[in-house]
């Protein structure tokens, strides 16, 4: 099954709803992936305002 992305928080996930924000507003049309492992020390995470480690899409349509 194609991986989906939550349009609200940009998380890449597998189910039908986002487990974090509970939203069902998902999209399969996304591009670019960023994996945040250590949000406290990651400059990239700070720049894009991510506080929890996870996989995120850079762009969601």
């Amino acid at each position: 099954m194609a991986e989906m992305v939550c349009r609200e928080c940009h998380r890449i996930l597998k189910g039908q709803t986002c487990p974090v924000c509970g939203s069902g507003n998902l999209s399969s049309d996304w591009s670019g992936m960023v994996i945040i492992i250590d949000p406290k020390r990651s400059e990239i995470a700070k720049k894009i305002g991510i506080e929890t480690p996870d996989r995120y899409a850079l762009k969601v349509r």
Partner: peptide
């Protein structure tokens, strides 16, 4: 294979406690 490499590197970084803070795989 950019995404699969990124995912595997994440697993290794977590397992071996390596100081990798983030991984970026842009489509461009």
């Amino acid at each position: 294979q950019e995404r699969s490499v990124a995912v595997m590197l994440t697993q290794i970084a977590k397992k071996d406690r390596l100081d990798i803070r983030s991984i970026l795989a842009p489509d461009e």
